[in-house]
């Protein structure tokens, strides 16, 4: 799942190096426009709804965090 998401997001947002940090939000690599873009991409690709409560640094700081959030939301 992690590799799949990395490939998907790297294609959508070529200007962002998602492997550069494990604290993408805290390090300022993801701004609000990119975060909403990521949410849109993941929602459409995996047919999930990402609720507002899930928009926390922990979920967006790394590909691993994003993958774990997607898996959790797919199970629900």
């Amino acid at each position: 799942m992690e590799e799949e998401i990395l490939e998907l997001l790297s294609a959508e947002f070529p200007e962002v190096d998602f492997t550069a940090s494990d604290e993408l939000v805290d390090d300022g690599l993801l701004d609000s426009l990119t975060i909403t873009g990521i949410i849109a991409t993941l929602s459409m690709e995996y047919d999930i709804e990402i609720p507002y409560e899930e928009i926390i640094e922990e979920n967006f700081n790394s590909i691993a965090g994003l993958a774990s959030m997607v898996e959790r939301l797919q199970e629900n």
């Binding site: 609000s32 975060i35 909403t36 949410i39 849109a40 929602s43 459409m44 709804e49 507002y52 928009i55």
Partner: peptide, 11 residues
Amino acid sequence: YMHLAIHPKLL
């Protein structure tokens, strides 16, 4: 902004 941008209807 965040609430609107991730709203399922907008998506």
